[in-house]
């Protein structure tokens, strides 16, 4: 059964955004937009999260942080790049300290446009991400998440 779709927990990290997209991500949680209607919870803890919302471009110092958060999330997981900066670097693309969009460091599944991305489009992006999440769940070896042996072999396979 596909319960992942009904209970996506997200984690949000501010790459080097101007805050515009960040407060819009937070605004999604509050009464006007209330994403908990869809079972979406902002966990703030990578180990509990299924969806990684990244706002802002990636720079030299935070690439490790972003990578770290992603690695701590258990499979299956998806990455949503929120806003134009996370997509391509946006207006800051030519700044000396910017590496570029989130896809320089992570495999991005969904790009949400906008500067700043509106809460509606962020929610839309998350919903699109759910379909990707479901695909990834199906692709996961069925016993990988249970048995210790299966997990060990899966890790071996990845390496």
């Amino acid at each position: 059964m596909a319960f992942l779709k009904r209970s996506p927990w997200m984690i949000h990290y501010d790459g080097s955004s101007c805050n515009g997209c960040d407060i819009e991500v937070l605004a999604c949680l509050t009464p006007v937009y209330d994403v908990e209607r869809f079972g979406i919870v902002n966990t703030g803890n990578p180990k509990h999260a299924d969806i990684f919302l990244l706002t802002g471009a990636v720079n030299e110092q935070n690439r490790e942080v972003v990578r770290n958060i992603y690695d701590q999330m258990p499979e299956p997981k998806v990455v949503v790049a929120v806003g134009i900066c996370a997509t391509s670097g946006g207006i800051f693309r030519e700044c000396y300290n910017i590496l570029g969009g989130a896809d320089k460091v992570l495999p991005v599944d969904v790009y949400v446009p906008g500067c700043a991305a509106r809460p509606e489009s962020i929610i839309d992006g998350v919903v699109k991400a759910l379909a990707v999440l479901e695909e990834k769940r199906r692709a996961l070896p069925p016993r990988a998440r249970r048995g210790r042996r299966a997990e060990a072999s899966a890790q071996g396979g990845n390496a």
């Binding site: 209970s7 258990p74 299956p76 998440r145 899966a154």
Partner: peptide, 8 residues
């Protein structure tokens, strides 16, 4: 149910 679907 979702948590059981996740890899441990």
């Amino acid at each position: 149910a979702k948590l059981f679907e996740k890899r441990r």
